[in-house]
């Protein structure tokens, strides 16, 4: 099976991973730090990086666009450097594209989110070329699977769904 990779940041990586790992077509996930300059980033030293998730998915079962639409449903892309009550650029909204195709899909999806008028404001999600991804420590991987009552600020908003396009 040929898989593809997506790297997204939308706030605390615990909640992001817990919802995204359940999606059909998602083969595996891992959380980490990316988008900054610090090498060998860790939880206590990742200044400039965003908390992010790397998703391996089967393109025969889901698409990059589908993943982005879910991404925009479970986090608020309109709050700059903030998600829920968590504040700081660690919690920024960002899409780290791997290919020019992914960049185009990201920009198109953001344009559709903006045009829909369903979200509460202007999208502040960064669209940036993927760089080094520093895997987070084991205690941060699958955190909510191990600690089901643990903290999350992510949840799917019923109204934040893009309408299907007519072909």
């Amino acid at each position: 099976m040929a898989t593809e990779k997506a790297i997204l940041a939308g706030g605390c990586f615990w909640g992001m991973q817990d919802l995204i790992r359940r999606r059909p077509g998602v083969v595996s996930t891992r959380v980490g730090y990316t988008g900054g300059e610090v090498a060998n980033a860790t939880y206590r030293n990742h200044r400039g990086h965003a908390e992010a998730i790397e998703i391996s998915f089967d393109p025969a079962l889901t698409s990059y666009r589908d993943l982005l639409e879910f991404f925009f449903q479970i986090h608020d892309p309109t709050t700059l450097n903030r998600q829920g009550n968590d504040i700081g650029d660690s919690y920024r909204s960002a899409i780290f594209y791997e290919t020019d195709d992914q960049k185009q899909v990201a920009e198109d999806t953001i344009a559709d989110v903006e045009a829909s008028g369903l979200w509460p404001g202007k999208v502040v999600t960064e669209v940036t070329a993927a760089g080094p991804f520093w895997e987070a420590e084991p205690e941060h991987q699958d955190y909510l699977e191990r600690i089901p009552d643990g903290y999350t600020c992510h949840f799917p908003r019923p109204d934040w769904k893009l309408p299907r396009r007519s072909r």
């Binding site: 605390c12 608020d76 829920g84 009550n85 968590d86 903290y151 999350t152 600020c153 992510h154 949840f155």
Partner: peptide, 16 residues
């Protein structure tokens, strides 16, 4: 904050 229903007011990742 736009947080999941039932989350106590003022809860942050760091406070938790």
């Amino acid at each position: 904050g736009d947080v999941p229903p039932g989350t106590p007011v003022g809860t942050t990742k760091l406070s938790y």
